[in-house]
């Protein structure tokens, strides 16, 4: 049993990503969408917290939202995977439930 978590807020603006990562179970997946994609960028004040969590959960970003914000995929934290809308649907289908952190 595993959960797909989605986060759509900037980690610098709200606690959504922090709270999400604090509630993830081993084997869960976190998909960053909309302003949530800023949480996947390396070298930020939030990056070390995200990196720590990657030992137990898989992280994804929605690539169209990354491109919209002018972030090159090369700037993502190592190990975070980009996905498109079809991949989003697959992630939803693959997990037992989806939980949105708004």
């Amino acid at each position: 049993m595993s959960t797909l978590h989605t986060v759509n807020k900037s980690p610098f603006a709200t606690q959504a990503l922090l709270s999400c990562l604090n509630h993830c179970k081993d084997g869960d997946a976190v998909l960053m969408i909309e302003d949530g994609v800023y949480g996947g960028v390396s070298g930020t004040g939030m990056a070390s917290m995200v990196e720590d969590k990657m030992k137990s959960v898989t992280l994804y970003v929605l690539s169209p939202d990354l491109s919209a914000r002018g972030i090159d995929a090369a700037r993502l934290i190592d190990g975070i995977q980009g996905t498109d809308y079809a991949g989003f649907v697959e992630l939803v289908a693959k997990h037992d439930r989806t939980q949105n952190w708004l």
């Binding site: 169209p64 491109s67 919209a68 002018g70």
Partner: peptide, 10 residues
């Protein structure tokens, strides 16, 4: 203000 923004897909 970041450069390279491309909203074509959203």
């Amino acid at each position: 203000l970041t450069k390279g923004q491309d909203t074509g897909e959203i």
